[in-house]
Design a protein around this nucleic acid. Structure first.
Length: 497
RNA sequence: GCCGGCGUAGCUCAGUUGGUUAGAGCGCCUGCCUGUGGAGCAGGAAGUCCUUGGUUCGAAUCCAAGCGUCGGUACCA
């Protein structure tokens, strides 16, 4: 019988890869987002919001033949049998928006923050619903816009308290990479698949090292777990081109450009890429952003899909030791690049665009790890208790008085006795509790309890509970008229600033 | 996608070579104490032992698959 009833109860469960985010983290994230927004706005980017749901073809995810959307996204059919999906980034919706609003003043510069959704295996710091915070410039092919992306990245990270030297923005250009691929091909045709494979191998440099890349480009590579990854199967001469490319490490951006130019000399697309990097370098120098903040790094690949020119990523360079004693690094928290073909899908006309995106959750985790996100977890520092339910109207008046004075104040709305009310106040992080009963009403006073002090003093109570109850060392009385002032005084004891 | 660890109360976990009614600590609720947080004492609620199938007289325990979770690797628009 009873078992039968229980089996009908709804099981409390949550979708894989999704999270509940509690007060502290929400507050920390909000604070972070507002600081980022300030930086974006400082550069003239304006907000945009788009729906969470889009048509699948707008997102660019569909298999022309199979009547099924591509994997990796949350999709379903709407009431008109159309395929609809949750957005998996903020760039595709931006492209759609620009295509639908052709009268926007160009360049159009917008920022957008919000959750995006992907169906992938959740991992450490990887979820199926996560926040991105993007900014983009649409409608200009000027490298100044790309250089500005790098500057905004720097300013953003510093605005969040990350010190110069603890991060670096790395820049590369897809055209340079394409030039290198062309040189590897050496006149032969290089299939897209092989090109892709080479780029992926390059992308793994910081994980597997230069020897690892060499193996990946050649016969393949076995990692320490014994897993074998098949290689690209390039010849020694071809591998040498890539290795020489990856070995370029010059002191200045200009010198790096020189070295790159030497490598892709005579290859049109490569030369074009180097020229773009030179323009970016110049713009960065004009803005005062030197090599201590932005470097040209040939090893940057950044995804493989729609980037057409410069690509950049913001990387945190410090390590953090987590609670298990394991050293972790956060790596890339910011990524972006130029995508000149994305709006064309809708309009048939090329529309230049460039921008970058913050992985909000990862950056927040990094900030929390280095203690740059102190938030006060108690929204309201004050609790008005209800000792005598008949005096509720007076309690409400006191609460309103405090609120009018700018003190977030909670009126106890539960049904428990005063003892439980103090426990509640303490457990929910309140700093101060206000008590008024018959005694106080008679004498025209209120009792105020410093809960934090109470916690401290309670360590020393020992067994003499009666004495503690009589003396109440953390509590004092004050005239009813001085309520606000007294509360302010108690709160001032603990105010951080 | 592939490889591995782990799934027992809200949490952290114990549970003998397979054996009767599945335990502990913390937390929660009630009372001692209806005007006070800690401590103490007394009592209480709370379990599909992840699921399904198999082996067995008998399974939380052994086997298989699945699901979940954590980690490695791949992918990352």
């Amino acid at each position: 019988m009873a078992k039968n009833v229980k089996s009908k109860r709804t099981k409390a469960r949550r979708l894989k890869g999704f999270r509940d985010i509690s007060a502290d983290d929400v507050l920390a994230r909000d604070m972070m987002i507002s600081r980022i927004r300030e930086v974006y706005e400082r550069y003239g980017f304006a907000p945009l919001e788009t729906p969470a749901l889009e048509y699948v073809d707008v997102l660019g995810k569909f298999l022309p033949e199979a009547d099924q959307p591509d994997g990796g996204i949350f999709a379903f059919r709407d009431e008109d049998e159309e395929w609809v999906a949750l957005r998996y980034d903020l760039t595709a919706p931006l492209s759609r928006f620009v295509a639908m609003n052709r009268d926007l003043p160009m360049p159009y510069r917008r920022y957008q923050v919000g959750p995006v959704y992907r169906v992938e295996k959740p991992g450490p710091g990887r979820f199926r619903e996560f926040f991105q915070f993007d900014f983009d410039s649409v409608g200009t092919s000027s490298m100044l816009a790309d250089a500005e992306c790098c500057m905004v990245m720097c300013d953003t990270l510093e605005a969040l308290g990350i010190l110069r030297g603890d991060y670096v923005v790395r820049v590369n250009d897809r055209k340079v990479l394409n030039g290198v691929l062309e040189k590897v091909a050496d006149g032969e045709a290089l299939s897209d698949r092989v090109g892709l494979h080479i780029l992926r191998s390059i992308d793994k440099l910081d994980r597997v090292g230069i020897e690892g890349v060499e193996q990946l480009l050649g016969p393949g590579r076995k990692d320490e777990s014994g897993d074998f990854m098949s290689g690209v199967g390039l010849g020694a001469k071809q591998i040498d081109v890539v290795i020489r490319y990856l070995s370029i490490q010059e002191k200045t951006r200009a010198a790096t450009c020189d070295a790159l130019q030497q490598l892709v000399e005579g290859i049109a697309v490569g030369m074009e890429g180097v020229a773009e990097l030179r323009e970016i370098d110049e713009a960065l120098r004009g803005g005062g952003y030197d090599e201590d903040r932005v470097v040209i790094d040939p090893t940057v690949v950044r995804g493989l899909a729609y980037y057409t020119g410069p690509v950049f990523e913001g990387v945190l360079t410090f390590d953090v030791v987590d609670e298990k004693g394991v050293t972790r690094q956060f790596g890339s928290v910011f990524g972006g690049g130029r995508y000149d073909n994305l709006v064309q899908r809708f309009t048939g006309q090329q529309m230049a665009a460039t921008g970058a995106s913050i992985g909000v959750d990862r950056l927040l985790a990094a900030l929390q790890a280095i203690g740059k996100t102190q938030v006060d977890s108690a929204i309201a520092p004050a609790l008005v208790t209800r000792l005598d339910k008949n005096l509720t109207a007076e309690y409400q008046r006191m609460a309103q008085e405090l609120r009018s004075a700018g003190i977030n104040t909670e009126l106890y709305v539960g049904k428990q006795g005063i003892g439980k009310q103090f426990k509640y106040a303490s457990d929910s992080g309140k700093t101060v509790a206000i008590v008024m009963g018959e005694d106080e009403l008679q004498s025209g006073e209120v009792s105020i309890k410093d809960l934090r002090l109470g916690v401290e003093l309670s360590q020393e109570i020992g067994s003499d509970r009666k004495k503690w109850l009589e003396e109440q060392p953390a509590q004092f009385s004050t005239p009813r008229s001085g309520l606000v002032k007294s509360i302010q005084e108690v709160l001032a004891r603990y105010s951080a600033i």
